[in-house]
Write a protein that binds this DNA or RNA. Structure first.
Lengths: 335, 335
DNA sequence: CCGGATTAGGTTACCGGTAACGTCGCATCC
DNA sequence: GGATGCGACGTTACCGGTAACCTAATCCGG
């Protein structure tokens, strides 16, 4: 073993009487060694408890990194949490590690994060955001690594896109509501008018209404982060303008549940007096007195598919430029 | 600029007519350069858009890494999500990056994660778990980097401990319940009997009852992950054994809300017929028809404090071995 | 039995920072 | 005026893998 520190590739090689390169080849599962050599190497590796040095591997002119950067809007959302957990787990099984960041729906924060990430020479980047700053785009180009845009679908992906159409999710919910005979519909959203996935659902929703000549009776776009509170107070604010509604579509399930709490408090019956629909398919939606009408997102499956797509891309295997994940409108009983 | 690729330290140095080392010193904010040189370097760095190579920095015999590993039970919990987001943000401001993993309350998964992390030569490790395998402990010793055990307090920290006593949280809630006159109390938990923070709260809770000579009237330990469903069905299962209760303490708020949904469905009034208490202080707890009795955890503050403590430790500044974060019992109106 | 293809390795160069240490000039002080 | 100290740099060595290239032995069909 070299003077101090942990055993390295060279230590394994020396005790076995082979070269570093042979050991490296075996460990990377490359070709160019016999069965016998492979077994001897693996045995010695196990005996010494050798730990590879990813830093060194990712360094060099070769630079074969196993690091993948992932940036989502926030870490406090169970939806993104589920995607991340699934992605992390799947990538780990495939031999990759992640560096996770959040951009809080601000393109500048994404850019700052990406700049830091770039200094770690990642093998690929996964972004969950609709808007990228010009700096981000330039940096991605410079980095020259695969990029997966997930969560939403883009018309022109930078490289890969994996997700589903939030616009269609909104559209579908509008059709569901109008088909149920709702006439005076309101919308409560969050994150202002920023170009987020939620805003895209809103646009799809209004389009769905427009299809049959309807418009929103009222809308309330809070600037807060989505959440139970926001749904509660957003509903209160909207109704305080003395509008009469027979249904409300919410930014997401948390806000819908918050809204439900307010509606119940002021004595409205759901769905008799007013209908409610959310988005996201969170677990809580199914234990309410009445199962919430929502759109379920297969987050864990999404994470797994993203992991597989990115790794295929890195291995040079053919990958579809756009992969659509199927979402499901859960009728529930609040419409 | 060297043949191909991005500008490096050497390129900056050459155009300025100084050595790489001088540029490195300026960029790291070390000493040994004049004001004039500093300004010239910074200007050239800005002009070329130089990006440092953390890989190279963390490599070498020097090995000054800015990577910090963080492992939490799961990424789908808003509580841990909030801690991670705050930790991530605070560490980023201090010039550090994180590599995040989850262990799903299984010490073996934590060990596998740590082994992978170790191959990236991190500067420090943050663990949110009560149980560590012997392999984990050995590896941590070998790595020889600062270790912060967060979330729960341990009697003998490996290095640093930052958190609060889950045992005391449970104890305090027991006192709150008994002080309110509750006599026949049940408990609904998750994750089986594994040595988790939740189980520690359970133990503190039973101790609190024992203090005044009481015992639990019923208890239900599900093996599932905590969640709304689990709370709902756990309550159903417990009550199906024909026990009569006047209060239930839950693993956490999500389960309490799930339980509340079941209790309401079967026609029990809260808190008149039965009291309910959760833990965690999640946002949803405050928009229920009656504000949920719970324990609020300052997750964002915890993340910030952990970041500062770890960085102080890395800089060699003195740091308290144990830091206690104050939690707050929210009386609510469900007890 | 021979020549080209394949297999199983070895050799070399290199990546981009950083600790450690050496050096030089200049101000200071006795 | 010589010794001393220190600020401001320059030099050197090095980390641990990996692509690219090279070599020797083996194999196999004609």
């Amino acid at each position: 073993m070299t003077k101090r520190g942990k055993p390295g590739l060279e230590d394994i090689a020396r005790t076995l009487g082979v070269s570093k390169m042979t050991v490296s080849r075996v460990l990377r599962g490359a070709t160019g060694f016999s069965e016998v050599t492979r077994d001897r190497v693996l045995q010695e590796v196990a005996r010494t408890g050798y730990l590879p040095n990813r830093l060194a591997a990712a360094f060099g002119p070769s630079g074969s990194s196993t690091l993948i950067g992932v940036c989502v809007p926030r870490l406090t959302s169970p939806l993104f949490g589920s995607v991340l957990e699934s992605l992390n787990h799947s990538l780990a099984r495939l031999g990759y590690q992640t560096m996770i960041g959040s951009h809080n729906q601000l393109p500048e924060e994404e850019e700052v994060w990406l700049r830091t990430l770039a200094s770690w020479k990642p093998a690929a980047v996964v972004l969950a955001s609709r808007m990228h700053s010009t700096g981000t785009l330039a940096l991605l180009r410079d980095m020259g690594v695969p990029v997966a845009e997930i969560w939403d679908l883009t018309t022109k992906p930078i490289d890969l896109a994996i997700g589903f159409s939030h616009f269609d999710n909104g559209l579908e919910m509008a059709r569901c509501m109008t088909a149920a005979g709702r006439k005076r519909i309101g919308y409560v959203g969050a994150l202002g008018n920023r170009n987020t996935s939620g805003h895209l659902r809103f646009q799809g929703f209004t389009r769905g209404l427009a299809e049959i000549g309807m418009t929103l009776t009222a809308e309330e776009h809070l600037h807060d982060q989505p959440g139970f509170y926001a749904g509660y107070y957003g509903t209160e604010t909207m109704l305080s303008r003395n509008v009469t509604l027979d249904a409300i579509y919410y930014h997401d399930d948390e806000m819908a549940i918050g809204g439900l709490a307010y509606l119940t408090r002021i004595g409205l019956r759901v769905p008799e007096d007013i209908g409610v629909a959310g988005w996201g398919g969170m677990e809580a939606a199914s234990i309410l007195p009445r199962r919430l009408t929502t759109t379920a997102i297969p987050t864990a499956r999404l994470g797994k598919i993203v992991a597989e797509a990115v790794v295929s891309r890195l291995r040079g295997d053919p990958v579809a430029e756009v992969t659509i994940i199927q979402t499901r409108l859960v009728p529930g009983s609040t419409i």
